[in-house]
């Protein structure tokens, strides 16, 4: 219960610090915009999707317009989740580690692991609540206004929350080592870039040196860290099957990136907890 209280308090702190609130307000504006703009009409006996009265035509003929618009929305919102989520939550662990504050937490009858994981749970919970609120809002708009109750979109959004929780394991580790918000944000951005490059390692890094050991090393590094890009790309598939193949967008959903990322996130959270437990404050 103490851990749960700390997690809820962390959400409250994230809201008061403003960034999460900005995300919430921004999400509401997008939901309101879609609620006003999205609609459907019948043209030549066929029902078409409209945005401010204009027909939405996907760039590829076979693509379902609803899937297309939700896919675009998903791609945009996941970027916002990672970017705004990072700004909203990167400071939550360093703020707890500030001199004068950390002593208050460590003197309570909670283990350091419990404190760190509760704080992380709160950070991810705040982001998760926002993501689900936004997704359910959009889902309801499409359901009521267009008549499409798109379960895949909700499921994909849920996977984004899971992705963020795995990604946050790196943020938590960076935070306990650096003890500063700025450095945590920089390291996390660097990690985002790393995850993107590693996701495309076969196209980019393999070509630098045609050596089997080198390729295996890259694969090892890739599987040892949470695969943020792969998880997001896989989640997008849940919205709808894209009629074109892309190296960055798989054509079929696979759970494997989530399983590998779960293991590496557990390793990162374990490492962060171990490091935190050994420190003097």
């Amino acid at each position: 219960m103490k851990g749960l209280w700390l997690a809820l308090f962390t959400i409250r702190e994230a809201i008061i610090k403003g960034t999460l609130l900005f995300y919430f307000v921004f999400g509401n504006i997008v939901i309101a915009l879609f609620a006003i703009a999205i609609g459907s009409s019948t043209q030549n006996g066929l029902q078409v999707l409209t945005f401010f009265g204009n027909q939405i035509t996907p760039p590829i003929a076979d693509l379902n317009p609803v899937d297309f618009i939700l896919f675009q929305l998903f791609q945009g919102s996941t970027q916002a989740v990672i970017l705004l989520g990072l700004f909203a939550t990167a400071g939550l662990i360093p703020s707890m580690l500030e001199k004068g504050t950390v002593e208050l937490y460590l003197s309570k009858p909670l283990s350091r692991t419990e404190i760190l994981l509760s704080r992380s749970l709160g950070a991810c919970g705040g982001i998760g609540a926002n993501v689900l609120y936004f997704s359910i809002g959009i889902w309801l708009v499409f359901g009521f206004k267009v008549g499409v109750w798109h379960g895949g979109f909700l499921l994909a959004s849920l996977m984004v929350v899971v992705t963020y929780a795995f990604y946050f394991s790196f943020v938590a580790l960076s935070a306990v080592i650096s003890k500063g918000t700025g450095l945590t944000i920089m390291l996390s951005f660097a990690y985002q870039m790393y995850a993107g490059v590693m996701e495309a390692r076969e196209m980019l890094l393999y070509r630098l040196w045609d050596n089997d050991m080198y390729h295996r090393l890259l694969d090892g590094l890739y599987y040892a860290t949470p695969q943020t890009s792969a998880m997001l790309n896989n989640s997008a598939i849940l919205i709808g099957q894209l009629p074109f193949k892309s190296a960055m967008t798989p054509t079929e959903f696979t759970i494997m990136p989530f399983l590998y990322s779960f293991l590496s996130a557990a390793l990162f959270y374990g490492g962060a907890s171990w490091y935190f437990s050994r420190q003097d404050y």
Binding site: W5, K99, G100, T101, S107, K108
Partner: peptide, 29 residues
């Protein structure tokens, strides 16, 4: 079964005195 007043303590400044005590009390179980 221990109470601690650290030197140069810093409480979350967005809380009231009452909320501060409630917060740390809950952490104490």
């Amino acid at each position: 079964r221990t109470g601690y007043l650290p030197e140069n303590h810093r409480y979350p400044n967005f809380l009231s005195a009452r909320d501060t005590l409630l917060h740390f009390g809950r952490l104490h179980g």
